[in-house]
Design a protein around this nucleic acid. Structure first.
Length: 461
DNA sequence: TGTTCATGG
DNA sequence: TATCCATGAACA
């Protein structure tokens, strides 16, 4: 599969984008190396404690006795898999792509062996430590300069490396605090970010023009994920605010996987494991997350979903309804798009790139959306870079995370900068590309003056 | 070098 | 026919 620009404008987007991103790279972001060293020491000590505890356990003794000649490497996933699934003959919760028993976090948790928690905790800390060491390695004179590439990704999105600025820990609270707590603006400045809300969903709508989807986007009182949560968890009281965890479960366990081409059985498993913590194998009363004063499992059982198999079937019916009723036009677009690819051998992005060569059905409907959504951000990034130089801003663009622009802001310029960002993203961009006939929106976050990236809070214009 | 695991969108 | 895209570490 290859993607090539078909217009001068498409080529120019990458050319100008490369220049704008190069200026952000040169600017860089400040790293507090004393803080990094302090946290590294803390992490190493904590990791050692988990490791010592693990090494003194019966589990480890058994593992050690099972390997010939020397001690097992507790960092080796394949040695662990061999011990668990070949020596101890445990049943793997799931297998990897190549058919081996998996030892990822989910699989180890399912085994319910307390010692494995020690290994998992150590591994989590190791990930944080690696991130800090990456910062340290790439810092010169207290600043690091992550690269932003436009030539590495199959969909013509961007990537980042040395260090990767696009996968710094965020969701885990402790990891967020440690990793982002190492990153600062120039003295006297503030870190700031502006991210497009639901840009892929909105850009997808520019392609498929599904009327129900457009209503969801345009009507601020509507809530697609909330509606799906009501349907999935069978909540009749439509006046009641959907429990935020259930809404998240619907969003990340059903809606997005469905958009990317997943199907009901995986959704059912994912919702149970990752989101409502209801073990499929032991579906019973009093388990899963709390809903009001009782557990989600009790609620589902009371609604007739009395086993995991029934839940799978329930999700199957919801999937049918999702594509054949709720988002019927989106579904038709996917079919048309795929048929057209099979007939002509390529598909064209709204931004002037042509994707040709071998693609699966999922690739075919996902690539143009992912690429185009990023091109929206890239156009804004180029425009803001141009304006910042023209108006001689002290505020600088320093990076980008797919749908998120990151800046190092002079507090005196804050108001002008944020108004300019809002105008460029929500007005100038849709004027520049008239195929954007869906309203766009951004959310902004600001850190205190001299505060770290871990200290950001919502910023209202 | 390919696989698996973590992280992010 | 069945989850899209990346980087990076560690191991075999």
């Amino acid at each position: 599969m290859t993607i090539n620009p078909r217009t001068i404008e498409a080529y120019k987007l990458l050319h100008d984008g490369t220049l704008a991103l190069a200026r952000a790279e040169r600017q860089g972001i400040r790293v507090d190396l004393d803080y990094v060293n302090e946290k590294k020491e803390y992490l190493i000590k904590k990791m050692n404690r988990f490791e010592q505890k693990f090494r003194s356990s019966d589990f480890h003794k058994h593992w050690k006795s099972s390997v010939k000649s020397k001690t097992p490497n507790i960092n080796s996933d394949s040695q662990l898999a061999n011990f668990l699934y070949n020596i101890k003959k445990l049943t793997p919760y799931k297998t990897t792509k190549s058919g081996q028993g998996s030892v990822d976090e989910e699989s180890l948790k399912q085994l319910n062996i307390p010692e494995l928690d020690l290994l998992l905790k150590k591994k989590k800390l190791k990930g944080i430590l690696d991130k800090l060491e990456g910062f340290e390695k790439e810092a010169t004179n207290g600043y690091m300069h992550p690269f932003f590439n436009l030539n590495t990704v199959i969909t013509y999105r961007s990537s980042s490396d040395s260090p990767n600025f696009q996968n710094i820990h965020k969701r885990d609270k402790e990891a967020n605090k440690i990793c982002r707590g190492a990153l600062f603006p120039r003295p006297g400045h503030q870190l700031f970010s502006a991210d497009f809300s639901g840009i892929e969903v909105r850009i997808a709508a520019c392609y498929h023009q599904d009327s129900n989807m457009i209503n969801y986007i345009k009507d601020p009182t509507s809530d697609m994920h909330g509606d799906m949560a009501k349907q999935i968890f069978i909540i009749d009281d439509f006046n009641k605010k959907i429990h935020s965890q259930l809404r998240q479960a619907a969003k990340n366990g059903f809606v997005f996987p469905q958009f990317y081409g997943d199907y009901y059985k995986n959704n059912a498993i994912g919702i149970c494991n990752d989101w409502i913590k209801l073990p499929q194998s032991r579906w019973k009363k009093g388990m899963g997350i709390e809903l009001d004063s009782h557990c989600i499992s009790d609620h589902l059982i009371s609604k007739g979903i009395s086993s995991f198999d029934k839940f799978v079937n329930h999700i199957k019916e919801i999937e049918y309804d999702f594509w054949n009723n709720r988002f019927f036009e989106y579904q038709k677009w996917k079919t048309r798009w795929w048929e057209s690819y099979k007939k002509y051998g390529y598909i064209d992005m709204k931004t002037g790139f042509r994707c040709s060569g071998g693609m699966s059905r999922n690739d075919c409907v996902n690539y143009p959306i992912q690429g185009t959504a990023f091109h929206c951000l890239l156009w804004c990034f180029i425009e803001l870079d141009r304006i910042s130089m023209q108006e001689n801003w002290d505020t600088k663009l320093i990076g980008q995370i797919h749908d998120d622009i990151v800046m190092d802001v002079n507090p005196d310029e804050l108001e002008h900068v944020t108004k300019t960002i809002k105008r460029v993203t929500c007005e100038d961009l849709p004027k520049h590309w008239d195929w954007i006939n869906i309203p766009l929106d951004i959310e902004m976050e600001l850190c205190p003056i001299d505060g770290s990236w871990a200290d950001k809070s919502v910023y209202e214009l």
